[in-house]
């Protein structure tokens, strides 16, 4: 009896957890594409008047020069945290650490590196 109650309670919890989880691809589309582009090549709709061009996430050479810790830090705390452009904002107010870690993995897929 207790087991069945726990099972039902567990079932009720599943949709709530699923509703909160956003995929890296969805987060990328929502927050990153505006500057880094639909292809991830740094050619988003916002770039025309930017003094510093966004990173090309498909450039394996450039992307390989960054550690995962740096990528995590720059997404979470913004460009200035690693002495890069202020145009890259901090995303910690929106993305959880877990979502940022997923985005770092997503970047590896984009650069194939």
């Amino acid at each position: 009896m207790n087991r069945s109650i726990m099972f039902c309670a567990a079932l009720l919890l599943i949709p709530a957890a699923a509703a909160n989880a956003e995929t890296a691809a969805d987060n990328y589309r929502t927050y990153c594409v505006q500057c880094h582009g639909l292809k991830g090549d740094g050619k988003g709709i916002n770039v025309a008047d930017m003094s510093t061009q966004p990173r090309d996430h498909t450039d394996a050479k450039e992307m390989s020069a960054r550690t995962d810790q740096e990528l995590f830090k720059v997404i979470k705390e913004g460009g200035q945290s690693i002495n890069k452009s202020v145009l890259m904002p901090p995303w910690s107010s929106i993305l959880t650490d877990e979502e940022i870690q997923d985005l770092v993995k997503h970047l590896h897929k984009l650069c194939k590196c």
Partner: peptide, 8 residues
């Protein structure tokens, strides 16, 4: 948005 010649 869509991809363009130089940028999206």
């Amino acid at each position: 948005i869509k991809t363009g010649k130089k940028t999206d």
